[in-house]
């Protein structure tokens, strides 16, 4: 297995290309992420860090340049091919949690598995186990509105792990949490990292900086080392 799990080469992202309101968000980004790393991505808002995360996460395509996930070039794939990679190789954790409000914690964690055609009973079994591992075995049938912020973020971590991805991408995972629950989430991520998951985390949180194996500073669409 290759050491490099994510490779970004000369990636540019331009919105409204060729129009008067053209906006260059990412300029010639080059980066590599090794298996088992925690990368902390820092930068002021509007610097392009979220866009970079979306491109690595196969939610968006670069205007030019290449992105390799586990050695596979994903920059030219179709919508559906990208969706499959998102489903199997990547887990997302968002600042806003982004749980589906009408589904219980258990159903939210089952969903990525159901989308990948895992049998309902198998999905439920695994979702229970995952929620247990993030300390929510008592909250399986609660709706997101009945959970605290920290609990919601745990559910979304469990959801990110549903299809046993290699990479977890997190966009300000502690941004909406108080420092105590934020710390709990960070501990949880460190624990998962020890189990082998690779993290790319956009954050302002100095606590994450402590546990990150490397830091990337992005400003004006460029990486500053």
């Amino acid at each position: 297995m290759s050491k490099t799990i994510i490779e970004v080469k000369d990636v540019r992202k331009v919105y409204n290309q060729g129009k008067p309101n053209e906006l260059v968000v990412l300029k010639d980004i080059d980066m590599k992420v090794n298996r088992g790393e925690i990368i902390g991505v820092y930068g002021p808002s509007g610097s392009g860090k979220s866009t970079l995360l979306h491109i690595i996460g196969c939610l968006d395509r670069p205007t030019s340049g290449k992105v390799y996930i586990e050695g596979k070039d994903v920059s030219g794939l179709t919508d559906d091919e990208l969706a499959l990679i998102r489903g199997q190789k990547i887990g997302f954790v968002f600042q806003q949690f982004n749980l589906i409000s009408s589904l219980t914690a258990l159903e939210n964690v089952e969903m990525p598995m159901r989308i990948c055609n895992v049998k309902k009973s198998d999905a439920a079994k695994r979702a229970k186990k995952l929620l247990g591992s993030v300390g929510l075995e008592e909250r399986l049938n609660h709706l997101p509105s009945q959970l605290s912020g920290g609990e919601m973020q745990r559910v979304s971590l469990a959801r990110a792990l549903a299809n046993e991805p290699d990479i977890i991408l997190a966009d300000e995972p502690t941004g909406n949490l108080d420092s105590k629950t934020g710390k709990e989430i960070i501990d949880l991520m460190e624990e998962l990292n020890r189990k082998g998951f690779t993290f790319v985390i956009i954050t302002h949180d100095p606590l994450i900086a402590k546990c990150a194996s490397r830091k990337l500073n992005i400003k004006d669409g460029k990486i500053w080392r």
Binding site: D80, A83, L84, R86, Q88, M111, I115, N163
Partner: peptide, 11 residues
Amino acid sequence: IMKAVGATNNC
């Protein structure tokens, strides 16, 4: 959200 966690257009 469903698309982000892997749902294809067809799905």
